[in-house]
Design a protein around this nucleic acid. Sequence first.
DNA 1: ACTTACTTGCTGTTCGTCAAGCAAGTATTA
DNA 2: TAATACTTGCTTGACGAACAGCAAGTAAGT
Lengths: 205, 205
Amino acid sequence: MATAVKTKKRRTQAERREEAEEKLIVAATELVAMKGFDGFSLAEVGDRAGYSRGLPGHYFGSKIELQNRVAEYVVNEFYVDAAKLEVREHGLKRIASLIRHYLVSSKLERVKALTFLFTHAQLEDSLKQTMTKLHNQALSVLKQEIELGIENGTIRKDVDSDLQAGIIYAFLRGQLGFAVLDPDYENVKLGEAFIQNLKKSLSAE
Amino acid sequence: MATAVKTKKRRTQAERREEAEEKLIVAATELVAMKGFDGFSLAEVGDRAGYSRGLPGHYFGSKIELQNRVAEYVVNEFYVDAAKLEVREHGLKRIASLIRHYLVSSKLERVKALTFLFTHAQLEDSLKQTMTKLHNQALSVLKQEIELGIENGTIRKDVDSDLQAGIIYAFLRGQLGFAVLDPDYENVKLGEAFIQNLKKSLSAE
DNA sequence: ACTTACTTGCTGTTCGTCAAGCAAGTATTA
DNA sequence: TAATACTTGCTTGACGAACAGCAAGTAAGT
C-alpha cells in the first residue's frame, strides 16, 4: 500500500530523456497542426508536454531544429501506418485500397501538420529533404504496384508506371488539402470516382 | 529639360492613395511568396514598396487585414489571367488547354503565395472564405466545360461533371504543390499523361 | 486654409536563447 | 549496503531582438 502510492517507477536516465523528447515532439506536432508551422512558442510546447517552458530549447537547441524533428516524426508515423496494411491483392485492386486508405483513414491531425510542413518545405532546406523522402517513398510504392499489375495482366503493358504514380500521388495530395479545409468534403465519392477513372485508363483488355 | 528631371507628375490624392495601396499589396504578396504567410514584418512591406515602415499598419489597420487583402489580390489575378484565355474549342480539348495553362503558365511567385494562403486558410476564417471562392470558381469552370463536352458529344453522357471537375482540380492543386517545391519537376509530362487518362476515361464512342 | 497622404518616434509585448541552479540517477569505494 | 563523488535531466530567471500598434508630426494636394 505504502509503496503503491508512488506510481512512478525508477527509470534510467536514458528512459527519462527518451520519454521527455517524445512527449515534446508529440506536443509540438499537435501545435503545428493547430496553429501552423510557426504559430506556437517553445514555452507552449514544454507546457503542453507537461514539462517546463525551457526544456524544448534545452534539448533541441533551436526552434527550427524541433520543427525538423516534428517533420521526421510525422513522416515516420506515415511509414509505420502503411506497414500495418495487410496485402491481400496486387495491381489495380491494391492501388484502389491504398487510395482509400490515404483518403479515409489518415488521421486528420497528422494530415494537418503535414500540410504545414509540406508548404514550409519551400523555405527550409532541411524540411524539404525530409518531405522529399516521404514523397519518394509514396511514389515508389505506387510505381511498384503498377508494375505488379502489368505483370499479373490487370494493367496494360504500355502504361508508364512513373507517370501514373505521379498522377495518383498528386491527386491524393490535392484531395487531402481540401479535406483538411473542409472535413465534410466529399472525399470518399471523389476517391471512388478517381479509382473508376484509373480502371478505365489503365486496365488491360 | 528642366522639368524633365522631375519624373513625378502631380497626382490627385485618390491616385496617390490607390497607387500606394497597390504597391503595398504587391510587395506583401512577394514577401508571402518568399518568406511564408507570417514570415515578414509590416515594416518590410513598407520598405519594399518604397514607402515608410509605418504605412502598411496605417492603411490596413492590422497585419491579418493586409494578409487578407493579399489573398483577395492573388485570387483576383487568377481570374484576370483566366479571362485572357481565348476560347477556341469546348469539351475535352478545352479542358486539356486549361490544364496546360494552369501547369505551365502560372507565375511561380503567385503560385507560391497561393500555397501559403491555402494552407493558412485552415486557421483564418476570412482567408478560408476567399480561398473557397477561388476553389468554387475553378470547379464551376471545369464542370461547365465537361457539360459542354457532353452536349457536343465528345464526352460520355454518364459522366458526373461535379466529381470529374473535383478530380481535375485536386490533381492540379497537388501538382502545383510539387512544382513549387521543385521547379524541375516533370510538370508537363505528368500533365500530358493526366490528359491522356482523362481522354480514356471520359471520351465518348 | 484645411484635408488627406505619408513618416517618425515610442511603447508594450512576445519569444528565442542562454546560463545558473536544483533534482534525479549512476558509478565508485569501502 | 551505504556513503560519496559525479553525470545527466530538468527548471527558473534574465536579457535582448523583433515587431505590431499607436500617436503626434511633416509633406503633398485641393
